[in-house]
Amino acid sequence: MSEVLLQLEGVHTHIGPYHILHGVDCAIPAGGLTVLLGRNGAGKTTTLRTIMGLWQASSGRIRFDGLDISKAPTPDIARAGIAYVPESMAIFTDLTVRENIVLAARSGPVDSGRLDWMLGLFPALKRFWNLPAGNLSGGQKQMLAIARAIAEPRRLLLVDEPTKGLAPVMVRSMIEAFRALKAAGETILLVEQNFYAASALGDHVLVMDDGRIAHSGAMSDLVADPVLQQRLLGLSLDAHQ
């Protein structure tokens, strides 16, 4: 395995009276796409939010490229180079598509090469460029959310269920987009319930259960092992294709 970019050690997270993460240990290698799988309520979203500092870990350590970010405020974590696409997408509906992108590029105007690349990935955004983002469809909002995350070079993208609620044709488009991002060398941690999308994209896989990492390994191994799938996810690849 290549160099570790993000490392979680014994991370516990409480939300109000509820204990959600029970000691998460994992390592995300630099480069490639790691898929975080698991049932509803296993703690995937909480893991992403804890990394992002949106919920504070009550104990344990989160290291990003050697830097301890477990207690860092969210803006500092973002500035360290982590981008976050929440499940709700959190598009600013009142702002135009352009303004959404402008805000995401914190350090100044997006350079034209990058902009062309982004709009090449998501051409729909170009057509709605000066319209309020609230006008976009669900799939287009998802594209904007991802475009916002890559408006500037970042070192790690946290993406929470980008295919949720999308039509099958849009899911395939989304998979293509992520392939392109991988090809561009981005490091991505992707929460995904859709095993078809997950297996198509993942280099590495983490499986969560009950607030812990239950399995960690190469995606290809999991895809090749129906018994392991059955045990970890209670499903087989065939059933979901």
């Binding site: 973002a78 500035r79 929440p86 600013f92 702002l95 402008v102």
Partner: peptide, 21 residues
Amino acid sequence: GLLIRAGVENPEMVEALGYRI
């Protein structure tokens, strides 16, 4: 101004973009 408008709508996401709200 953009930040204020975005912050009114979703302060958490503004923070996640790296701004100290």
